[in-house]
Design a protein around this nucleic acid. Sequence first.
DNA 1: ATCGTTGCAAATGTTTTGCATGTCA
DNA 2: TGACATGCAAAACATTTGCAACGAT
Lengths: 130, 130
Amino acid sequence: MVDVIRNTRQRRAVSAVLDDLEGFASAQQIHTALERRGEKVGLSTVYRNLQALVDAEAVDALRGDDGEVLYRRCVDAEHHHHLVCRRCGAAVEVSGSAVEAWAGGVAADHGFVDVEHTIEIFGTCADCAA
Amino acid sequence: MVDVIRNTRQRRAVSAVLDDLEGFASAQQIHTALERRGEKVGLSTVYRNLQALVDAEAVDALRGDDGEVLYRRCVDAEHHHHLVCRRCGAAVEVSGSAVEAWAGGVAADHGFVDVEHTIEIFGTCADCAA
DNA sequence: ATCGTTGCAAATGTTTTGCATGTCA
DNA sequence: TGACATGCAAAACATTTGCAACGAT
């Protein structure tokens, strides 16, 4: 009944790349990283595994400015936002209780319910700016 | 030298639809709205005009959760964020000086430069929740 | 032997672009 | 007239899906 999740070579490979990545990377970048390691994994499989990891809340996903989705191993399970380097993808997880409260308040003031928010900060990190 | 922006029927039509729209709408929805009005405008032209309006800062654009871009006539020229109804697209422009400051501070704390941020609040508006 | 997984190719859906034609100024 | 605008079809993208073959348990 409950789907058994199998431990395949491809799943392990995707997970391993994610572990070694410092920042956010697109599915295509991850696919390329796998090729560089000599691991042959179909692009669709990369997408499928990333999606599974996101569903399992083991990976964070966010949409970059150009609309492509970026993935990164989740560091903190709690709700948080990101400060992401638009050049190298390095990211810092940021907790923003103050912002959460602000967002909730704004929404409530206008009678909105089921509120969610998207907050991402993009910039160039110190290393890339050097 | 400087491109002259011509006042074509199509440009006027797109602009008119934007004026009548209450909230954010996708390029395709705008294209459909034009058809309903009996205005024949190519989809590419809709995209081109919307992009031109965004460049001219006469229209706000944001990316919905599914990755499609939504457009809306700009109410306030200053920097602001949106509280958007995920059901009908109705939107409230929100100024968040406190949040701007927070975002800038977080970025500075980590040595990031050229900082930008994306903050959107999605919810269901009072009318749609009723 | 199952039944989830994979790979590939094809399909999707949005947005962009090449280019010949139209048209505003 | 002449530069910008348009329309269409095709291209470009990221992402998803159908399906037969594969492989972990």
